[in-house]
Design a binder for these strands. Structure first.
Lengths: 193, 193
DNA sequence: AACAAACTATCTATCAATAGATAGACATCA
DNA sequence: TGATGTCTATCTATTGATAGATAGTTTGTT
């Protein structure tokens, strides 16, 4: 898909709206006003709201995976990788008070078309897998305790970051995101020798 | 307020709907069908949707505080208290696939009337305070490391549990909630001596 | 005790606004 | 010409909310 195309422009705007107001909180008419075309034209590119959400969630998930590859390549240690990972979410928060797209959609899971939910599930799985990989590397490198429960810790990190975004956005306490993530990574890295 | 009253009945039904579908995901007409009165009658008791949400969130927050008092009195150790605390959220998940009311509302913070948001903020503050109190007790009792950052850990616990609920509900992986909370409490309690 | 007034709680009917979605017309471009 | 992408017009359905009618209950007065 050509990133200069109108469909792409629609998806960018939709991503922002979903991250800000959620699936039930945005409409095609909101989008049409933002972009400057009529809502019927949005239907041309994305026949239903669910189609749009699937496309946005898929693009988000795939884009995130690519970002994680880059991140992984640029991090010398697991701690660095985790810090950079958390920084992705922090950056989202600092951008128009957004939260993770899939976290936002997940909170509305009862309202989601099944295909959208499939995408969010997949997103979470991919995050956990990546985090587990980073943690395993950290164990092998001696950065983390040898008895670290990698699977549980990966799930813990993801839950924490998603939850922290929601709370921080609600309360406006901007420092709390890093307070929480730093504390978590300190605990995970184990006792200082 | 008489718990047998219609207003109370409305609030019980509204609580469930918000916990399941969120603020934007339920309507007065959904409620009216559930309860068996017309939506105009709900307006009689709660003039606006925001009024209803404020009342539900306030009742939830106050009820939660009372529950925490009982919980605290029945726990011999901080670990027990934390486990019981997590069990509250687990129980919510196990009930109609609900999540924490204030967590759900918080995810829709952009759509909330300000008074509702004030309630969720207050809820989170109260949770953090209670958790910090438990953690402090645990340090004094020698259950937790003396250098535990109480404030950060309290925020961490809350973020984790809220995030885990959202992810678990989305993915349907029922065991993950306790996987995450157990791992967190293990980390917080520090190294086995 | 009887009655009227006030209160409570429900209803019908309705409104304005919005939302997802559709069909066909139209203009541009390859 | 056919494909693409936008538009107008419209539809059904829903939503939060309002005004006034109605019925039952409670309170106050005689």
């Amino acid at each position: 898909m050509n990133t200069g195309s109108k469909a792409h422009e629609i998806m960018i705007a939709a991503k922002k709206m979903i991250q800000t107001s959620g699936y039930n909180g945005f409409s095609f008419r909101d989008l049409s006003r933002e972009i400057g075309i009529k809502s019927a034209s949005i239907h041309y590119h994305f026949p239903t709201k669910g189609d749009l959400a699937v496309a946005v969630a898929t693009a988000y998930r795939e884009g995130f995976s690519e970002t994680l590859l880059d991140l992984e390549n640029g991090a010398a240690t697991t701690q660095q990788a985790l810090q950079k990972y958390a920084a992705l979410f922090q950056k989202t928060l600092d951008t128009d008070q957004r939260i993770c797209l899939c976290g936002m959609l997940a909170s509305e899971t009862e309202s989601l078309p099944e295909k959208v939910r499939m995408e969010t599930i997949r997103f979470f799985e991919e995050q956990e897998q990546w985090l587990a990989k980073m943690l395993s590397k950290g164990i092998i490198a001696g950065e983390l305790p040898a008895d670290t429960n990698v699977t549980a810790s990966a799930k813990l990190i993801l839950s924490t970051l998603e939850g922290a975004m929601i709370i921080v956005r609600n309360t406006g306490r901007r420092n709390d995101f890093s307070t929480v993530s730093d504390q978590l990574f300190t605990l995970i890295s184990g006792p200082k020798i």
